[in-house]
Design a protein around this nucleic acid. Sequence first.
DNA 1: ACTTTTAGACTGACCAGTCAGAACAAAGGA
DNA 2: TCCTTTGTTCTGACTGGTCAGTCTAAAAGT
Lengths: 248, 248
Amino acid sequence: MRTERPRRHGGGATSGAAPGPGARAAEHGAHKAGPEPRDAAPAVSGPGLRRGATRRKLFDAAVTLIAEQGFSATTVDEIAERAGVAKGTVYYNFASKNVLYEELLRDGVDLLATSLQEAADRAVHAGGTRVDALDAMIRAGLDFIAGSPSLTQLYVAELWRTNRVWQPTLQSVRGRAVAVVESVLRDAVAVGELSEELDIPLTASALLGMVLVAALDWLSFQPHRSVEDVHASLSRLLQGRVSPVRPG
Amino acid sequence: MRTERPRRHGGGATSGAAPGPGARAAEHGAHKAGPEPRDAAPAVSGPGLRRGATRRKLFDAAVTLIAEQGFSATTVDEIAERAGVAKGTVYYNFASKNVLYEELLRDGVDLLATSLQEAADRAVHAGGTRVDALDAMIRAGLDFIAGSPSLTQLYVAELWRTNRVWQPTLQSVRGRAVAVVESVLRDAVAVGELSEELDIPLTASALLGMVLVAALDWLSFQPHRSVEDVHASLSRLLQGRVSPVRPG
DNA sequence: ACTTTTAGACTGACCAGTCAGAACAAAGGA
DNA sequence: TCCTTTGTTCTGACTGGTCAGTCTAAAAGT
């Protein structure tokens, strides 16, 4: 599928079809009529139905398939099959393949930002320094990536692509993750733990990149190593480093 | 296209078609007959013909399109159009879309490894320390990425995908790039500039990741900044850091 | 009673790859 | 200088498989 340039498929956008029950679509560009997906927000929850479980299954199936093959190369039939549901179910739960993907990204990466934030808060509340907080975030990042390598994979593959329909989604999520790191860095500078010359945004993305790439490399090429081990190495790289300027 | 699982298209693999002129193919799994691509090696050169120029144009067109849209979402027709040639020309010059992509990756990323190596050598020969060499490599990396952001994009999107037909190609190239960094790190440790506790492979990939991600972020989100500026920031991050262990 | 899932046939656009011939270049030949 | 020849490179209409998305009637869940 060309993804970027929307097609207009099938029976001409359900032209003039009977409105069917509940046509309250008011999100995403333009839905159609029919039994369609009622709301996009509650990704996995909602007033007690099976939908939550089904959506979860679809996310899980989609994330691994897409990480392996790429978005366009992954077919809806495959996703349905791996999730163990009928193709129609996919379309009952998501307006389109694109929407499924977009919600998947949002759902997943939200978790990362949250997890980083919590790790930082915990470290600071436990009386650690800001650098300790950074270290805790590295650990949290590694744990998260180890737990969802496919998702990380997707994230890395998509983030810097411009012109994709789900770019806005990704950008906003990226913003959240980076913001967490940046705020810790800012605090650290304010408190005097780090040099004032520090370029906050750039350092934040460099750190994120360091963890991301190191983690993916670890999982791909040295999977036998333990998280602790990897964390220790990165930590050493950080500890000696993001500290106050040295003379010279 | 499903890319990973090869299709079998068109008229049954040119069944029994007239061999046509020059059928000396002896590379790539199994070519067919016909006027086909004569050799894959000379990406852009060769005994004086137009092919070189055409291939270059196709590489250029393909790299940007694929960086923007992804491999499967990019059609051969688009590539041909952007390159200003007919679709048939693509297939005259490359056995398939896959092969085009593979050669493109090889061609491009080879340049990166070479450029890193040269930068390192230059720094060392100029009498600098190993850390200076690392610094020079960061700079070379930034320059390279700034010059070919699309290529970098592709690289990042593909590297950790398993199960792709061009994985071997990428792996070998990645190996070359990482090897350059690792050798400098190893030297530095040997000479005593860096701690012996340093985890060479992991640090190498972390550094590469740092530069990669920082550069892509820079180009995407703060394009107005100068290379010098970005380099300085990363350099600071490095200088204070990958140095001998500190007490404590 | 209402919501969700099923199986799968169907549609229409789409796209990788093909092929027969046209355009082009180099090297004589008159 | 102007053909003719021969091999190379390019062209674009065409073929046949593929896939997103639709639809239906009935079954399953709550």
